[in-house]
Design a protein around this nucleic acid. Structure first.
Length: 347
DNA sequence: AAGACGGGGAG
DNA sequence: CTCCCAGTCTT
């Protein structure tokens, strides 16, 4: 038997009885799909019922205030879903005369509806031949066909999407889409899948090769290193003290301010910190916290703190990388964004 | 291409 | 504690 028929047979026997499976109404299906994004059925189900009770139609939804919507959404997480739904409901009332779209190309334009949800709603409501690709589908395909391309890369997404659409059972896309997702959710589960009683295990690559728990492959996001830059703003008339970054590090040949890098986030009263500051800028130096910014780079998180310094003593001959420049000159110098923004906000 | 967004359940 | 869930949007 084909992969598709096996899945559908399994589904017809094992499917759960869920309320959104009894309708082809695109509004109701939309409700369920948004609620179920990154959300377990058991957690989303009560919310689905509440929303349908409060807003039986898309115009009821659109008439509500955003606060009412978010109140019902409370506790479900990812609150932008609720806000997007409200905006979409109003757009559907205004631009689609209150008839919720059923076609992929209309759906994909709506706020909160991405590739997965557009495929799901169009397939379930109008039978359009669009394959859903969600976390379940990634897992089932990766295991059954032995695909080890990482699912969280562009190549992986492309490959799985292509395969999913080739496999799509076009005679009944809704049935097939439901089947593969349900199969992933309760049979081919992430942890402890029920392989021994799986009707597809004979042809399952992962089962035959004993690599079920190694698929799908998901690339771990590289651990970003946290760094803590403490900058000092020293001014003298219209001059400001800047540093040219010469070391083998980020932002080479760009300019920033005098800086002490620390192992963790400090406050201006930390004794070791004050000590090292006074070491450079004299014992009378007064440190005042100005602002904090988190600056994100590809492989690093730079926690930037700015401090202004008064009553300092500074011997420029000891620090050749530091120079006084006028604010006008500073404007011309190449600087990292976080420095550029600070200057814009403070000078 | 990588992060942010969230709460809950399973192991 | 980590992983992951019927993903999408923003930077």
């Amino acid at each position: 038997m084909t992969f598709q028929n096996e899945l559908i047979n399994w589904y017809l026997i094992n499917k759960r009885d869920l309320p959104w499976r009894h309708t082809k109404d695109s509004y109701t299906i939309w409700l369920s799909e948004i609620i179920l994004q990154q959300t377990r059925v058991e957690q989303g189900l009560p919310y689905f019922n509440t929303f349908l009770e409060n807003f039986p139609s898309v115009s009821d939804f659109a008439s509500a205030t955003e606060a009412q919507v978010l109140n019902l959404w409370q506790g479900l997480g990812y609150y932008s879903r609720g806000r997007n739904m409200h905006a979409t409901a109003q757009l559907v009332v205004n631009n689609y005369n209150g008839t919720f779209p059923t076609l992929h190309d209309d759906l994909i334009k709506l706020k909160g509806i991405g590739e997965y949800t557009a495929a799901a709603i169009s397939s379930f409501s109008s039978g359009e031949a669009r394959a859903v690709v969600d976390g379940n589908v990634f897992r089932v395909l990766a295991r059954y066909f032995g695909i080890n391309t990482a699912i969280n890369t562009p190549e992986g997404k492309k490959q799985f999407f292509k395969l999913a659409n080739e496999l799509l059972f076009r005679e009944d896309s809704a049935l097939y889409n439901q089947a593969i997702m349900e199969f992933g959710a309760i049979q081919c589960k992430p942890k402890s899948p029920k392989c021994s009683i799986c009707p597809l295990n004979i042809d399952c690559f992962a089962y035959r090769n004993n690599v079920v728990n190694q698929l799908p492959v998901k690339l771990a996001k590289a651990e970003k290193k946290n760094r803590y830059f403490n900058y000092f703003i020293l001014t003298e008339g219209d001059k400001i003290l800047v540093r040219e970054r010469k070391k083998r590090d980020i932002w080479q040949h760009l300019y920033d301010f005098p800086c002490i890098e620390t192992e963790m986030l400090l406050d201006g009263n930390d004794l070791d910190f004050v000590e090292s500051v006074k070491n450079i800028f004299g014992n009378n130096a007064e440190i005042t916290f100005v602002s904090y910014k988190k600056h994100l780079l590809t492989h690093q998180i730079i926690n930037v703190q700015f401090f202004s310094l008064k009553n300092y003593i500074f011997n420029s001959s000891k620090h050749e990388e530091l120079n006084w420049v006028s604010l006008n000159t500073l404007d011309e110098l190449p600087k990292p964004n976080v420095i550029r923004n600070f200057i814009e906000e403070n000078f």
